[in-house]
Design a protein around this nucleic acid. Structure first.
Lengths: 169, 169
DNA sequence: TGAGGATATTTTCTGATGAAACGTAAGTCA
DNA sequence: TGACTTACGTTTCATCAGAAAATATCCTCA
C-alpha cells in the first residue's frame, strides 16, 4: 500500500515526525466543522435558517431591540455577515429594521411577531441539539470543554495581534 | 440603551431565554475560527501555505508516498480540497504527483526536495504555535480539551446521519 | 469478452465569504 | 461654519467552498 516511487528523485531524508491527528488546532477545526454542519443542517431543515441568521435571531430575541453593530459584537460576526443575515431575515418577515432616532447612520433591529414565533421554535431545537451533543461526554469533560474554549478564544487574541473577527458560520 | 420601538407593532411576548455566549456550538465555532485564522496567518506569512496545503504537506511528509484519497481520509478534507491543495503544491514545486503504477486512476504524492525543506520548516512553527496556544490552559484542561474534541467529533457523526466530510480549513 | 457499475481524481457551476470601496451621517476643532 | 476624520451599514468584487458532473480506469459477472 505504501511504496517508494522510484521513477524520480526519491526524497526521503530524515523528517521531523508530526502527527496531524494529534494536533490540537486540527482537532478543533474538525470538531467545530462537524458540529457546525450538523446544526446548520438541522436549522435549515426545520426553519430554513442559516447559522448566521440563527445567531442574529437569537441575539435580537434576547435583547429586544439592538443595532447591527451590537449584534456583530455579540455574535462574533463581522458587519457584512450581520448585514446580510439581517437583510435576509427582514425579507422573510422575521425581523424589522428601523432607523435609529438618535443616530442617522444607525439601524435598530427587532423581531416581528413571526420572528418571535420562529425564535421560540428554534431555541428548543438548539437546546435539544446541544443536549444530544453533550451526551457524548461526561459532566466533567463537558464543563472543562466549555471553559477551555472560552479561555482559548481569549488567549488566542493575545498571541496573534491580528484582530480576528467573525467565523465561517 | 435598550428601548422598545413604539413606531410599529412592538412584539415582545415571553421569549425563552437563550444565551448565545454560553451555547457550546457557538463557543466551539468561535474558538476554532480564531485559532484557524491565527494559524493560517502564520503559515501564510512564513511559508505561503494555506491550511489545506499545510495539511497535505504534513501527511505526505509523514507517510512518504500516499494517494490523494488517503490524504483526504487522514486530513478530514474532501477530495476536491485535496486535489486543489495538491495541485497548488505541485505547481510550487513542493510536491510530486506520479501515476500509481498499480492503478491507472490513482496518483501518488510525495515531497520534492524543496517540499521536504518547507515541511521541515513548518513543523517546528506548528509545534511552536500549538505550544503558545497551550500556554493559555493548564495541563489538565489541555488534556481534557484534546480528549473531548475527539469524543465530540466521533459522537457527532452518530447524531446526524449526514456523513460530514472536510472543513473550511 | 463486454456491459454495467464502482472508484479515483479533476473540472465545472453556483453560492458563501470577507476585504475594500462606497454613501451617509456624526464628531472635532480651528 | 467648514474642512477633516471617524463610525455605521451596504454593496462590490475577487476568492474560496462544496455539490454535482465529467473523465478515466478498474472490477464483476453473465
Amino acid at each position: 500500500m505504501k511504496r517508494k516511487s522510484k521513477t524520480e528523485e526519491a526524497a526521503t531524508p530524515a523528517l521531523p515526525d508530526f502527527r496531524l491527528e494529534e494536533f490540537l488546532p486540527y482537532r478543533l477545526s474538525v470538531a467545530a466543522n462537524r458540529v457546525s454542519r450538523m446544526f446548520a443542517h438541522r436549522y435549515s431543515q426545520a426553519f430554513g435558517l442559516t447559522i448566521p441568521e440563527w445567531r442574529v435571531l437569537a441575539v435580537v430575541g434576547r435583547l429586544g431591540t439592538i443595532s447591527p453593530s451590537a449584534v456583530g459584537e455579540m455574535t462574533a460576526m463581522d458587519k457584512v455577515k450581520v448585514s446580510r443575515a439581517a437583510a435576509s431575515l427582514v425579507t422573510r418577515g422575521l425581523l424589522k429594521q428601523a432607523q435609529d432616532p438618535n443616530d442617522g447612520r444607525g439601524r435598530l433591529l427587532s423581531l416581528t411577531r413571526k420572528g418571535v414565533g420562529v425564535h421560540n421554535g428554534v431555541v428548543p431545537l438548539a437546546k435539544e441539539l446541544e443536549g444530544s451533543l453533550s451526551d457524548g461526554l461526561n459532566k466533567q469533560e463537558w464543563a472543562v470543554l466549555n471553559k477551555a474554549l472560552v479561555k482559548l478564544t481569549e488567549h488566542v487574541i493575545g498571541i496573534d495581534g491580528v484582530s480576528i473577527e467573525g467565523g465561517p458560520d
